[in-house]
Amino acid sequence: MQYQVEENCLTIFLPQEVDHHNAEDIRKEADKVIEQKHIRYVIFDFAGTNFMDSSGIGVIMGRYRQVYLMGGEVWAVHANDRMKRILRMSGVTKIMQVFEEEKK
């Protein structure tokens, strides 16, 4: 898993395809970092992602549960239209902010 930690904020750079096969690794590694670094904010960076199924939704909901009790938040950035549609359809946008980039 590609990630970056800044203070209490974890940015996860999601792979090209997020499915059940790689969701498992993301969740295990993310939870280790969340615990060790006292993470409160998790940012899912979709810049390199063009496929995600409901397994990815499970990963987001799971990380939300991890940080929510400490008053944390989860965010999505750099999501393309397809990813935004998946996020909206799943209802996960009720618990997660989708950051809208400024159009250049």
Partner: peptide, 9 residues
């Protein structure tokens, strides 16, 4: 951590 959204999708 299954989201329960498989059939919905």
């Amino acid at each position: 951590e299954r989201s329960g959204m498989g059939f919905a999708f």
